[in-house]
């Protein structure tokens, strides 16, 4: 099929949209994707025994205690009880890593500990182990406010992320802002366009029938506008995450969330 067919139908989807008005003006106009979901999906997220994202958390808890690498050390050997030591950690990522001399996201930090502290090979990005550990660490911040660090070294990367967010790209020539600012709350084909906050990751997405990272989500958005997605772990994703987290400052962490 000719791409132009998709182009027009995409545009008409994006423009001939319903008129859902965003949250009340008086309150914080930001809303998590949670609020845009059906009651049933919200219930699924609220109840840990109904949320399949909890399988990753349970697996992460096991990995946390597993002794690995040439030193036979576990995460728990150094960090002890994750409920205490990891509380709030996910809310301040990406952070600046001196070891890396650049920003790292939570998954990057976990892999840094794997390599430099456990002497074990890093987990593959988007693989089940890394998702599980990130979900387990992330869950320790559930309900806490997203609190990006005030670190001047992060600023150029955050600004790079903001520029990427506003840059039109792909064959459809859409920027993130075109959808998530200009058309948030409206429908694109069957999906409600959320404001695009990174509050729930890693999360269980019904469409994936599994758990995935923010990078996988962003990859989907890039492919949606027919841009070449970045490779997992690319600095562009970290930069975008830095910007998205600053935009979501103060919103609650929901890991592991549910999304359609």
């Amino acid at each position: 099929m000719m791409p132009s067919v998709a182009f027009t139908s995409m545009l008409s989807c994006a423009v001939a949209v319903s008129t859902v008005i965003a949250a009340a003006q008086t309150r914080d106009p930001r809303r998590s994707g949670f609020e845009d979901m059906s009651r049933e999906s919200q219930a699924m997220q609220r109840d840990d025994t109904a949320n399949p994202g909890m399988f990753a958390v349970l697996e992460g808890e096991e990995l946390w205690r597993a002794k690995v690498g040439s030193r036979k050390t576990s995460c728990a050997d150094c960090h002890q009880n994750a409920e205490v030591s990891m509380r709030g950690a996910a809310a301040r990522y990406p952070s600046f890593s001196t070891a890396w001399n650049g920003p790292v996201d939570l998954q990057g930090q976990i892999n840094l500990c794997r390599e430099t502290r456990q002497n074990a090979p890093p987990f593959p990005l988007e693989g089940p182990e890394l998702l599980a550990l990130s979900a387990y660490v992330g869950k320790q911040s559930r309900g806490m406010s997203i609190a990006p660090p005030d670190d001047a070294r992060l600023e150029p990367f955050r600004r790079q992320g903001e520029a990427l967010y506003n840059m039109r790209q792909g064959q459809l020539n859409f920027s993130c802002a075109n959808c998530h600012e200009d058309h948030a709350g409206q429908r694109l084909a069957g999906s409600l366009i959320p404001q695009g906050h990174p509050t729930g990751y890693p999360l269980y997405r019904l469409e994936w029938q599994g758990i995935g990272s923010l990078q996988r989500r962003l990859r989907g958005c890039l492919i949606g506008v027919r841009a070449e997605p970045y490779a997992y772990g690319a600095e562009e994703y970290i930069a975008l995450e830095l910007f998205l987290m600053s935009r979501a400052r103060g919103m609650a962490v929901e890991t592991p969330a549910i999304r359609p």
């Binding site: 099929m1 998709a6 084909a189 069957g190």
Partner: peptide, 11 residues
């Protein structure tokens, strides 16, 4: 990917 995208939009 392109084919599937078109498919998706056309339901």
């Amino acid at each position: 990917r392109r084919a599937a995208l078109v498919g998706g939009l056309a339901l």
